[in-house]
Structure formats: structure tokens, C-alpha cells
Amino acid sequence: MRGIQTLTSSLLLVSAIAGLSLLESQIQVFSFGDTGIDARFFPRIVLGLLVLAVLIRLFVHRKTPDMPLGYVSSWLRVGLAAAAVTLGLFLMPSIGFLASAALSGFVTALAFGERRLMFSVGLPLAVAAIVSFGAREGLNIPLP
């Protein structure tokens, strides 16, 4: 892999092609006696244009230097935070907003390199508590 731009462009290309190939099965068209274009028309054009544009981009940039992919440790930190939020979301319906938000915040703080308990555990817990109290009592949001 040449670099992160090529990687992202390729991912976009793959998704767009996947979208095009799933188009028929994911969009049902009912003949309704209407004139005009059907539900598949616009998605097909837009996805086609996207494929074309990304191909052009990959071609134009085939020789220009790409941005480096970055250090493994950087990716690990991002992965850790993303995994923590994912886990928090999985648990949210069962353990509630406060606990899972505090968990996500705690792991994010760890990933940022915060080691003091006061800030890594205390701060996210405090913020989550304020947020969930404010949302429930002040903003009338039924948090899980």
C-alpha cells in the first residue's frame, strides 16, 4: 500500500462498487403507472459517478507522493478508543448511559496517556454524571 490517501480512495472505490452491485437487490421497484424515473435511477448515476471520480483520482495521483500511513502505535491508540466506544454502545442498553459513557471516556483518557486516577476515572465519571443528570432532568431526554 502506497499511503493513506490511496488506501482511503481504494476503500471508497470498493464501497461504491459494492453499492452498485447490491443496487438491484436492495432497491425494489414497483411499477405504479407513474411516468418518470424509478427509485434505482438516481442511486445508479451517483454511485457510477463516484466510481468514475475515484478512479480518476487514483489515476491522477498515481505518481504524486502519498501521505504516510503513520505509526502502529498511533493506530493502536485510535483503535483502543474506537473499541472502547463500541463496547460502551453494546453495553449501553443494559448498563445505562452513565456507566457506558464514563467507560468510553475513561478508555479515551487512557489512550491519551492520562495515568492519574483523578483525571482518567474521576473526570469522565463526573462529566458523564453531569451530562446524564442534565439531559434527564433539564432536557427531558430519556437516556437508556
Binding site: A81, V85, G88, F97, S100, A101, A102, S104, G105, F106, T108, A109, F112, E114, L123, P124, V127, A128, V131
Partner: peptide, 8 residues
């Protein structure tokens, strides 16, 4: 971390 919580 606080922004993460607010985003949720």
C-alpha cells in the same frame, strides 16, 4: 474524553 461523552 469529555467530548466523547457529549458526542454520545
Amino acid at each position: 474524553p469529555a467530548i466523547t461523552i457529549l458526542a454520545l
